[in-house]
Design a protein around this nucleic acid. Sequence first.
DNA 1: CGAATCCTTGAGTTCCCTCAAGAGAAGTGG
DNA 2: CCACTTCTCTTGAGGGAACTCAAGGATTCG
Lengths: 229, 229
Amino acid sequence: MERILAALNRMPLFGGLSREELLRFREIAQEKSFGRAEWIFSEGDEGEGFYVILEGRVKIFKLSPSGKEQILHLFGPGDSFGEVAVFEGGSFPANAQALQDTRALFFPRAAFRALLRNHPDFALKLLADLSRKLREFTMQIESLALKEIPARLASYLLYLAREQPGDGNVVTLAISKGELARLLGTIPETLSRIFARLSGQGLIRVTGRRIALLDRAGLEALAREGRIP
Amino acid sequence: MERILAALNRMPLFGGLSREELLRFREIAQEKSFGRAEWIFSEGDEGEGFYVILEGRVKIFKLSPSGKEQILHLFGPGDSFGEVAVFEGGSFPANAQALQDTRALFFPRAAFRALLRNHPDFALKLLADLSRKLREFTMQIESLALKEIPARLASYLLYLAREQPGDGNVVTLAISKGELARLLGTIPETLSRIFARLSGQGLIRVTGRRIALLDRAGLEALAREGRIP
DNA sequence: CGAATCCTTGAGTTCCCTCAAGAGAAGTGG
DNA sequence: CCACTTCTCTTGAGGGAACTCAAGGATTCG
């Protein structure tokens, strides 16, 4: 219990709340666990509440009738998902599945909304959280609509380099290359070919899930312009 | 002034507020006008506040280095835009341009956030508003990543049929076909060819900006499955 | 060590974009 | 009201990026 309060407090969403406030939120939440590959909810399901990840990884994705998958978000500890259904509409707009064994807190809709009414500062944090997701979607739409796949991959690798600690010239994929393909809006075969092409051009070196960025300037040009100058 | 209060009150965002509350919001807002094709803000600009449209139409869009455009949103009277910069980050994630002469209320960031703190119900409305936008982005990403252009067009026509009054078998485009192409993630030439193809298949009949939906079931199958059964 | 999953490579096809040019519609001014 | 420009839309030819299908190689895991 104490550990959960501490974990909550480290999250952007719950950071800065007093101990009493944290307890109030903790009280209405239920802990839930999901095994690897387990579905957390499906598109169209009634959204009775939303989730905050304590441990593990979750993907949010859409499926086409023919079975092609597009990943919308990858979430880890401290991230929340499923808020849309709490504030609007009632149903989940996409599917959620655990990529690893995952523990999460589930906040029931009605109790959470009631609590929110008495914590306007927390509402501002939530607004910031949703705004960040809108900004990320904006970038993803730009990526899908305006960039070719090599440029999307370059952008993603540079994003990883910014996020991951280290000298920034070696990044490690947290997901399989297949999942990465579905995140970038393509299929494993195409991604594999593009990894080979960028390696051949001396931009990167791929060793399993570790990718060395050999030519930052070239990758940045590729991400920006779609080609190497 | 009275007319603006009434207009605000008719919007989902400001509906249900008391007259005093409305006045408080109105007090901090500045009225701004934009001519057709005028830029309201650019991607990366510092977001000093957000806008609520009183009259006119606005598009929110991204541009690629090569000049290709992807429209993210089309907004009309009662819609708000630019909130992301108010709650997170500070800069606008995309460009905004008036499609027609437009009047809008501008709510400065700091004053608005201060006011929000005392109106938790209004914060819930804003959360619902952002959630709706997230849901729309989810659909747009699905469309771009998982559907071919004929399916995107069919979805859009059926969406118009739902939105527009009438028997639902004739819809009118509020935007030019060029803009529609940029909304669907394609170019005018391709859209034109697809209009011709769907007309040839007897699904629609195009007369300028008026489009008759001749075969709803066929269009629905196309939107869903990407092909006609 | 064997099974299952993940990844890579090849061949062929399709969808859509680029480039180019002409037709139509709409707005301007004489 | 008609000639003019200007913008918007349509149609054609060609090419390229990425997908489908297919099969073999590499990892991982029990």
